[in-house]
Amino acid sequence: MPDTVLVVGAGPTGLSAAAGIAAVGKKVVLVEKENILGGAPIISGYARLVPSGEWAKDAIGRMVGRVEANPAVTIHKNAKVAQLDGEAGRFTATLTNGQTISAGAIILGTGFTHFDSINKPEWGFGTFEDVVTTTQVEQMVAAGRIACPSDGRVPERVAILLCVGSRDRQIGREWCSKICCTVSTNLAMEIKELSPKTDVFIYYMDIRTFGLYEDKFYWKSQEEFKTKFVKARIAEVTRAPDGRLLLKGEDTLVKRPIVIPMDLVVHAIGMDPNLENPQIAKVFGVGLERHGFLDRGEHYTNTFSSTRRGIYVGGAALGPEDIDSSISHGLAMALRAVGDLGALDHQAA
């Protein structure tokens, strides 16, 4: 009977699952398609995380270090599962690097793909250099300087547009990406910290800084950092003769058209289903839900099950998710997977 769990994806979800399994004395094979571990926060170079305020490279770096240092974890980077045979209790996975792995259970922590702003051309990304995404601003904050890509000047005014690539039937994205409101209010404060003279405006339809993120991010950003909140969904971003960007829209609260100059426009991009999900569904024989994320089974008593026995799904693979929740998913899945190994040992005896 295999005493190994196969964990696919080394983001916060997979890293947490791997650490959990190893902690109770079972073996882990961790397969990651990139050449670095840590998932989106590391690959995309996020700055300080919400809600902890810790730098991503430190916080997620610790998660990576813990797994790398554990002899019970075998890591395959630059690899994916090419083929899966067998069933719950005795899976055999063939990796793209030629290795075969026997595993009793499988955990999918394959995460999400960032929304590509090119798909909303009216908001200027790809047309104007000074229209950027939250991931780019995360990288600016991490590098310690906020600047307009076009000429390197420090922006006087920054506009953050919420819900770019989320909550939009026109482009088939009928979900809220959950974390971008909080991330954006946090970025507004970070921008202000780096450049106190910069004014930051957030264009919103709703503010969804859920739970304890309300006062810590939304209120603080408004009250202490003087972020301005404007209730409007922008129609288009164009360029003024002087080279600045122009936001056009309707301020719904004053019922007036707005044409406001900005130096930097930031898209708060959403979380799409992992582009590879159709392929992942095929290889692992698991289902997709209607938005294209991986589907899950009954959650109350068959927690974090996929649609296939012996395979578990959690984190942003299931739908937009934040890091703290993803870590909890990972640990819960570790318990499920280890429980499966135990049950099978029991049967065999």
Binding site: D206, K231, A232, R233, I234, A235, G249, D251, T252, P257
Partner: peptide, 14 residues
Amino acid sequence: CWQCGSCTNSCTMY
């Protein structure tokens, strides 16, 4: 409708 204002601000007549 959730009152985002996109229709109004794209409208020819507006």
